[in-house]
């Protein structure tokens, strides 16, 4: 490695990224440093964006939270539990207190691992990603951001600047499955959002395909089947079908953390539960 660049602000970060397109961005370091410590990766240079003020702030614009890509999860849990309950819930399942103090949504997006816990809530909530470069800023729907494991639409000269997330219009849930009761990489995860004004359901799944995926058929099905006005209890047939459709949206693999069959099964169970919990919350609200 030949360089370590520290960005003072977003403009500077974009300049540095344009000048060093092969540099690896580092903020919380919770992915990048593991690769370095184990000698598994050898990036040409590091570009530190952990002090870029624009990335470390969030604000509210009408019904949207503009979340700087470098806001650590601890702050999301502490400050955004009301506006973004799904994301906040997911954030709380991530790593340990020490990890949450450093790790960021921008890191999850940049790493583009299907197991990034913050990602399904972003997809479910139909967030969009703001990418900045010297060429300007563009917005990409979170649902279109990922191309494959470790791959996204992020260009070499671009930086994930922020995520624009609709303020929850209804109940939001997130659940994951791991082989331990804390500090686990998800074997499967599911995020569900209810948007009663639009009669719309969001559902996305992590760790069960090459990228986090949207369970579109499950969303359409539930959006149509839920009794938005009567708020009647969910029939078991609806949750069962929703679960089936969520599982059908996945393309899991066998690996050291779990088999494909189990992941699919877990997605179905988690989808059923998260929809049920969200619906119960909606009925109470």
């Amino acid at each position: 490695m030949t360089g370590f660049h520290t960005a003072a602000d977003l403009r500077h970060a974009c300049e540095l990224k344009a000048a060093h397109p092969d540099a690896t961005l580092i903020a919380g370091g919770t992915d990048v440093m593991v690769g370095l410590n184990f000698g598994h990766t050898s990036p040409a240079a590091l570009l530190d964006v952990s002090r870029v003020p624009e990335l470390r702030e969030w604000s509210r614009e009408d019904d949207t939270i503009v979340l700087g890509a470098g806001v650590p999860y601890t702050r999301i849990v502490d400050e955004l539990g009301g506006a973004l309950p799904g994301l906040a819930r997911a954030a709380r399942t991530i790593g340990s207190a020490q990890i949450r103090n450093r790790a960021t949504v921008g890191g999850n997006l940049g790493t583009a691992s299907p197991a990034g816990d913050a990602l399904p809530p972003l997809l479910a909530a139909r967030a969009s990603i703001e990418l900045a470069s010297l060429r300007g800023t563009r917005r990409v729907p979170a649902r279109d951001f990922f191309l494959g494991p470790g791959r996204s639409v992020l260009a070499d000269d671009e930086i994930v600047a922020a995520v624009r997330i609709p303020v929850a219009a209804g109940a939001e849930q997130f659940a994951k499955l791991g082989p331990r009761n804390a500090m686990v990489i998800a074997v499967a995860s599911v995020a569900v959002t209810l948007d009663p004004p639009r009669r719309r359901v969001g559902c996305a799944v992590g760790s069960a395909a090459p990228t986090p995926v949207v369970a579109g058929d499950a969303e359409t099905f539930a959006g149509a089947e839920l009794d938005w006005d009567g708020r009647r209890e969910l029939p078991a047939s609806v949750t069962a079908r929703f679960a089936e459709l969520a599982a059908a949206a996945t393309a899991p693999i066998d690996d050291v953390r779990g088999t494909a069959g189990y992941r699919r099964h877990a997605v179905a169970v988690l989808a059923r539960r998260t929809l049920t919990w969200a619906w119960q919350e909606y009925r109470r609200s």
Binding site: T93, A175, G178, N181, A182, A186
Partner: peptide, 12 residues
């Protein structure tokens, strides 16, 4: 509960 921090059950 089982799952702990993963928020995977309400004791179902």
């Amino acid at each position: 509960l089982p799952g702990g921090m993963s928020n995977s059950t309400r004791a179902e």
